[in-house]
Every structure is written in structure tokens, then in C-alpha cells.
């Protein structure tokens, strides 16, 4: 059992994916869908507490949430957790994280540090503490396209509104090639 964030693939998302991946080609080519592969993609969600004093106000504190990609060096501040269920992966490809939760914590801390430092000209002191770490698998999709090479198939992650060609996501492409 693992924490997973489910998702459904709508035709509109495929259309958006084609538009994003092929802004010019789509005008000339008609792309036809030829099946979908489900991919379970790991993200760390890190809750952090930030405390800071500025020259104008002391003792400010708040909570923040950072999502750290477990396969790519990418971290993003996010509004909240995705809807999580405890379940099995079923069919589809499950990708394993390439970093530990300790490394993910450091990255989340580093991201916040950069933002707090660069945006506050009157900052005096600050501290950032990691409170909780969760590993969550997002359900994402590889959309096969007829008469198109696998590297040019679509990869869609609806949790982050991301759509691109598979070759731009080598960490996923590698596993699809193995199948």
C-alpha cells in the first residue's frame, strides 16, 4: 500500500497536450490517439515551518508546503496536498524515487531559503524547520500517438498541468522503452 494521488485523463487534456507539445505541427498534422499507459510518478511533499524577524516586525511565522520531484531536480511551492488515497498501483508503470526523504527535505529547505532571502530587503534573522515529509505517487499518463515515434508521444501530468513530448522526460521514457 502506498499514498497515491489518482487522476483521470480527459480528451481536453490530450488536446491541450498536443497543443503544448506541437504548437506548429498540429496545424499541419492530425494526431490520433493510440492508447494510454498509466505511470505512477513519485513526489515528496514537505511541510515546513518558517520563522523570521525583520527590522519592522519580530516573531513572524507561517507554514509552507513544497513538492520535490523524486526523479528530477525540480521543487515547487504548492497550495496544498493532492487528494490522497491508500491503494495499490494496479496496472501501469511505477517509478522509484531517486532521492531519499532526507535529500528531499534539504531541497525544500533550500528553495524556501532562496525565496525568503531574495524577497525581503529588511530581513534580520530567520529559521526554517522541516515538520513532515510524505511520499506521494501521482497518476500520470503517456498518450501513444498513431504513426508517431515513441519519443514524440505525449506525457501528461494533470496534477501540475504539465504536458510535453516523452523524449523531454527521459526518466519516464526509459521505462516506457523497456516495456
Amino acid at each position: 500500500m502506498a499514498a497515491v494521488a489518482d487522476a483521470k485523463l480527459h480528451p481536453g487534456q490530450v488536446k491541450f497536450g498536443i497543443k503544448s507539445a506541437y504548437p506548429f505541427k498540429r496545424l499541419l498534422n492530425r494526431f490520433e490517439q493510440d492508447g494510454v499507459v498509466e505511470v505512477w510518478y513519485p513526489w515528496y511533499y514537505i511541510t515546513l515551518g518558517v520563522e523570521m524577524d525583520t527590522y519592522l516586525k519580530k516573531g513572524m511565522s507561517y507554514r509552507d508546503l513544497v513538492a520535490v520531484d523524486a526523479l528530477r531536480p525540480i521543487r515547487e511551492r504548492v497550495q496544498g496536498f493532492p487528494e490522497i488515497t491508500d491503494s495499490n498501483f494496479g496496472k501501469g508503470v511505477k517509478l522509484e524515487p531517486k532521492i531519499s526523504d532526507k535529500e528531499a527535505k534539504e531541497e525544500a529547505e533550500d528553495l524556501l531559503k532562496g525565496i525568503v532571502l531574495s524577497r525581503n530587503k529588511l530581513l534580520k534573522e530567520y529559521s526554517i524547520e522541516v515538520e513532515k515529509t510524505s511520499l506521494i505517487y501521482h497518476k500520470t499518463f503517456v498518450v501513444k500517438l498513431k504513426e508517431v515515434e515513441p519519443g514524440n508521444w505525449l506525457y501528461i501530468d494533470s496534477h501540475f498541468d504539465a504536458a510535453t513530448t516523452l523524449k523531454m522526460r527521459p526518466e519516464v521514457y526509459k521505462h516506457i522503452q523497456k516495456r
Binding site: 513572524m60 511565522s61 509552507d64 525581503n120
Partner: peptide, 16 residues
């Protein structure tokens, strides 16, 4: 903007 932001978080990072 500095003093009337609703949370300390607004001040610190202007969340999204």
C-alpha cells in the same frame, strides 16, 4: 502591502 498582508507568509514570500 507590508503591514496589512493577511499572514506572515504573505510578507515572506507573497505566496503565488
Amino acid at each position: 502591502a507590508m503591514t496589512k498582508t493577511k499572514t506572515d507568509e504573505d510578507f515572506a514570500v507573497a505566496r503565488k
